[in-house]
């Protein structure tokens, strides 16, 4: 347990101290806020009450889109980082050294949670900036529960990351180079990409059967539910999708750990899907 803590600490401090973290944390929301507020900034005549209701709906859709994109970005970017960091440790043989001081499982968990913390920090900073922007820039009378939605946002993004990260870690452990990872990567990204492509469909029709199912299935829920929440989704659906997401991520982690424990010691041969399957069942 202590060793996992040390790994988490290293992943967190090393990444947060990087220039790229500071830049991406501050630059991305500036762009987002600009995109969100543009319609209001250019409308100087002042909105009527009816306009406000229209805008309110529009703003919900906009917020849904923004959160969906945010969730998608964080899961992909941080998931890839988990994979890259495992591949890098494998290439530099740091893995061989670390694995004489902890188990593969401890290493994998430490890495994933270390990065989850970094992602959480970044998302929280973004949300603060978004809420601040909303308070100062949006016209009075337009009201959505930004605080509550933001909190849900953090839960979905982190849940989605945890769900996918272990798979990225498993792939990273199995291959020797990022090139070898490409074919596996594509398959992992498929459901994430599909949820992203459904964005417009779901924003315009948030209560369709497709939207409901996709916001319950953990492969798509972190993105799809985030699109639906600002435009209104029933509480029972939100709760069940969160329960399913957080209930299935340990299953994914367990499966990934089975691959990881063998993959980290494999060198020189690019594994096939069949190999990965074998490693899961191997005792």
């Amino acid at each position: 347990m202590n060793r996992i803590g040390i790994i988490i600490e290293r992943e967190f401090t090393e990444r947060v101290h990087k220039k790229s973290f500071v830049i991406s944390t501050l630059l991305s929301p500036a762009l987002l806020i600009l995109a969100m507020c543009a319609p209001f900034l250019f409308n100087s005549s002042g909105p009527s009450v009816q306009d406000l209701q229209e805008i309110g709906k529009g703003a919900g859709a906009l917020l849904g889109t923004v959160f969906g994109v945010l969730s998608y970005t964080v899961i992909i970017v941080y998931g890839q980082q988990v994979m890259q960091s495992v591949i890098e440790e494998k290439q530099t043989r740091v893995l061989d050294v670390i694995l004489t001081s902890c188990s593969p499982f401890e290493l994998m968990i430490g890495k994933i949670f270390g990065l989850a913390l970094v992602a959480a920090l970044q998302v929280v900073i973004w949300l603060f900036l978004v809420i601040a922007a909303k308070t100062f820039l949006l016209p009075a009378g337009y009201d959505i529960n930004a605080g509550g939605i933001s909190l849900l946002m953090v839960f979905y993004v982190i849940g989605g990351f945890l769900f996918y990260a272990s798979m990225y870690a498993a792939i990273g452990s199995a291959v020797d180079t990022p090139q070898d990872a490409a074919q596996f990567n594509l398959v992992i990204m498929m459901p994430i990409m599909i949820s992203f492509m459904l964005l417009t469909v779901i924003v315009t029709n948030p209560d369709s059967q497709l939207a409901v199912w996709c916001s319950l299935i953990p492969f798509t829920s972190p993105i799809v539910m985030m699109i639906r929440v600002p435009v209104g989704a029933p509480i029972w659906q939100i709760v069940s999708s969160l329960v399913i997401l957080y209930g299935t991520f340990p299953v994914m982690t367990w499966l990934a750990a089975r691959i990881f424990r063998i993959g980290v010691f494999m060198h020189g041969k690019k594994p096939t899907w069949k190999d990965l399957g074998k490693w899961i069942t191997l005792n």
Partner: peptide, 16 residues
Amino acid sequence: YSIGYMPEERGLYKKM
């Protein structure tokens, strides 16, 4: 976990 091991291909983090 209690031994010391130095592999032939050295393992250090490049950017740390």
